[in-house]
C-alpha cells in the first residue's frame, strides 16, 4: 500500500552510487536506494546479488569505496559501525549472530550496550511483549535456541536501542513455513508502531507482501525498483523470483 498523498517524503536512508568491495571483489556496483520514513523497503535478488553487502555497507561493517550513504540527511559512509548504533541504525545480521554462550536476557542487554540500565530494563520489557516466547526462555543460552527463537532474539536485540531504521537480513532463512508467517507478522507489527525497516529476503513473495516498495538486485546492481504492487506484477520478477511462468 503506497501512500500517494504524502508530499516530500522524509527519507531515512539514501544510498547514492555506492560501490563496495570485499578485498578485490567488486560486490556493489553503483547502487542507489532510498528508504522513506515509516515504510518497509525490501531488497530481493538471488544469492550473491549484493543484498547482505548493502546492509553491511549501511551499518558500517563495510565502508563504500565510492558513493555516499546518507542517514537522516547526514553522510555516514565513513562512520564506524559502533557509532551508527548510537545514531540509530539497528541491524539483525545474516545468520543471526546470537551470542551463543549468553542467555536470551544477556543477549538483549548486549543489544542495549550503548544505553543506560534504566532504558534497557524498560526496553527488554517491550521486546518481551513483542516476543512472549523470549520471556518464557529468558534464562536459556542463545546457542540452545531453535532457529525461529534465534531470529526473534536477533530482531529483539536489534530493537534494544530503539533505532530509527531496522535492517533485517534474511529473517525467514531456514525457518518452517509457520514460523515464516509468524516472523513476517511481527515485522508488520513492528512497522505499524512506526519503525522504518529495510528488509533483505530471498523469499520474494513474502517480502513483497509486507513491503511498501522494493529493489531487485542482480550482481551488485539495482536492475528494477518500484512499489511492491508493481514489482509483483512485473513479468521479470514473476518469472525469476516468484516462481511463476
Amino acid at each position: 500500500m503506497t501512500a500517494p498523498t504524502t508530499v516530500a517524503t522524509d527519507v531515512v536512508l539514501k544510498l547514492t552510487n555506492v560501490h563496495s568491495y570485499y578485498g578485490a571483489i567488486h560486490a556493489l556496483r553503483g547502487i542507489d536506494i532510498e528508504v522513506p520514513r515509516g515504510e518497509i523497503v525490501t531488497l530481493i535478488g538471488a544469492n550473491g546479488a549484493g543484498k547482505t553487502t548493502t546492509l553491511r555497507t549501511i551499518s558500517g561493517l563495510l565502508h563504500p569505496r565510492e558513493g555516499s550513504v546518507e542517514f537522516n540527511g547526514q553522510d555516514i559512509s565513513r562512520v564506524p559501525a559502533h557509532e551508527l548504533v548510537v545514531k540509530g541504525i539497528g541491524h539483525a545480521p545474516e545468520g543471526r549472530r546470537i551470542f551463543s554462550r549468553l542467555t536470551i536476557y544477556e543477549n538483549l542487554l548486549m543489544g542495549g550496550f550503548t544505553r543506560s540500565k534504566d532504558e534497557n530494563t524498560e526496553q527488554v520489557e517491550r521486546v518481551y511483549e513483542l516476543f512472549p516466547r523470549l520471556r518464557e526462555r529468558h534464562a536459556q543460552k542463545g546457542g540452545t535456541l531453535s532457529g525461529g527463537e534465534q531470529q526473534m532474539l536477533a530482531i529483539g536485540r536489534a530493537l534494544m536501542t530503539r533505532p530509527d531504521v531496522l535492517l533485517l537480513d534474511e529473517p525467514s532463512l531456514g525457518l518452517a513455513p509457520i514460523l515464516v508467517q509468524q516472523i513476517f507478522g511481527i515485522i508488520r507489527e513492528i512497522n505499524a508502531s512506526g519503525m522504518t525497516i529495510l528488509l533483505v529476503e530471498q523469499n520474494a513473495l513474502q517480502a513483497l507482501s509486507v513491503a511498501n516498495r522494493g529493489y531487485v538486485l542482480q550482481t551488485g546492481e539495482v536492475v528494477l525498483s518500484g512499489s511492491s504492487r508493481d514489482l509483483r506484477e512485473n513479468e521479470m520478477v514473476r518469472k525469476a523470483y516468484l516462481g511463476e511462468d
Partner: peptide, 24 residues
C-alpha cells in the same frame, strides 16, 4: 564491567559486537 562485556562479546563475534555498539 561494561568494558569486560565489550571484551567478551568482541572475542565471541567481532561483527556482532560492533553491531551492539562495541568499539572493537
Amino acid at each position: 564491567t561494561r568494558l569486560g562485556r565489550a571484551m567478551r562479546s568482541t572475542a565471541a563475534d567481532r561483527d556482532a559486537a560492533q553491531l551492539m555498539g562495541v568499539n572493537i
